[in-house]
């Protein structure tokens, strides 16, 4: 089922100034429930803007964003005619019902950022509290939860992002880069969002750090069955960790589907100048040299399997 749905989204910065710039142009995309969706594209392809549309940080200049079928930017006025027919509002006096609808829309707007949790790029730069615990608690506190619930949330967030308990009373500024990033991610996970959006979660980390953070994200998704969106420009990571993919180029969505479906259009990815995984390049070279292996291989595991089988077949035909 579609958790999030973008319909004909357009977004333009600084309209009417010399700096006018179209970040998104007629983008339609679907993000399915209980999956990890990768959004890939160049810097300037509109990825980050698209993520900020999902939790209402920016409003699209054109088009609609639906979360569970609800247009997140709808105003009470637009909803009156429809909602007044709903059973919960039908029995009220019209003015009371309108007031109630207005309050409901307000409530949803305010709650949106807690339902769609966004971890921005280099999130370690947003840490500000004296202790890791307090920093992770910032989101839950803004949700108006009780001390007890906040505590539970902080531990929940810390557990999923791989922070040990002894770090909680430390100052976030004394931690290493990778740990800081984890604190920031924990701060969003602690809000228990239905959708977790991560913008370049592994940027600047070394290979081990990358692998750990992606594994933690995967583990989080698999155990909570929530919707996770990862933005990245690393095709190698996307191929490895994402179930679905959306490809953005020049402010447009040019492909969407399962990772396999998207990689099946690999030549198109090449055309828009995205870095296709090294392993895919290698397989292509082999095909050109007359080695009969399928074209769309994008993980090392798959390549090992195929080439091993290829070798076995050669050996088999020999005997």
């Amino acid at each position: 089922m579609d958790k999030l749905c973008l319909e004909h989204i357009g977004y333009t910065y600084s309209v009417g100034t010399p700096f006018e710039y179209t970040a998104l142009d007629d983008v339609t995309a679907h993000i399915r429930d209980d999956r990890i969706t990768g959004v890939i594209g160049h810097t300037g392809s509109g990825k980050s803007t698209m993520m900020m549309l999902l939790n209402g940080l920016v409003k699209p200049t054109k088009g609609k964003v639906y979360l569970d079928g609800y247009d997140i930017n709808s105003t009470a006025k637009e909803l009156y005619s429809d909602w007044l027919k709903r059973p919960e509002y039908q029995n009220m006096r019209k003015s009371t019902a309108k007031k109630a609808i207005k309050a409901e829309v307000q409530r949803r707007k305010r709650g949106l950022c807690f339902r769609v949790g966004l971890v921005m790029q280099y999130p370690e730069y947003q840490l500000f509290e004296e202790t890791v615990y307090k920093d992770i608690a910032y989101g839950p506190k803004n949700m108006g939860l009780s001390e007890e619930e906040i505590r539970e949330r902080v531990l929940y967030g810390a557990r999923f992002s791989g922070l040990s308990d002894d770090l909680l009373e430390k100052s976030p500024f004394d931690l290493s880069g990778g740990q800081k990033r984890r604190v920031a991610i924990a701060g969003v996970i602690a809000m228990k969002p239905e959708v977790l959006v991560l913008d370049e979660p592994a940027a600047g980390l070394d290979p081990l750090g990358r692998e750990q953070i992606f594994n933690e994200i995967r583990q989080y998704q698999r155990s909570t069955h929530s919707t996770v969106i990862i933005v990245s420009h690393s095709m190698e990571d996307m191929a490895e960790y994402c179930d679905d993919m959306i490809v953005l180029a020049h402010s447009k969505a040019i492909a969407e589907g399962t990772t396999a479906e998207v990689f099946a259009q690999i030549s198109m990815l090449d055309e828009v100048g995205l870095d296709i995984p090294q392993i895919t390049q290698l397989i292509r070279m082999l095909r050109k040299r007359g080695i009969d292996v399928p074209e769309n291989v994008y993980t090392v595991d798959r390549a090992v399997e195929l080439l091993r089988d290829h070798y076995q077949a050669l050996k088999g035909s020999q005997t």
């Binding site: 950022c113 949790g117 730069y125 947003q126 910032y138 989101g139 803004n142 701060g187 809000m191």
Partner: peptide, 12 residues
């Protein structure tokens, strides 16, 4: 950027 990040955590 920081304002957006904190807004994403419910800052008002």
């Amino acid at each position: 950027r920081i304002m957006n990040a904190q807004k994403a955590r419910g800052a008002d």
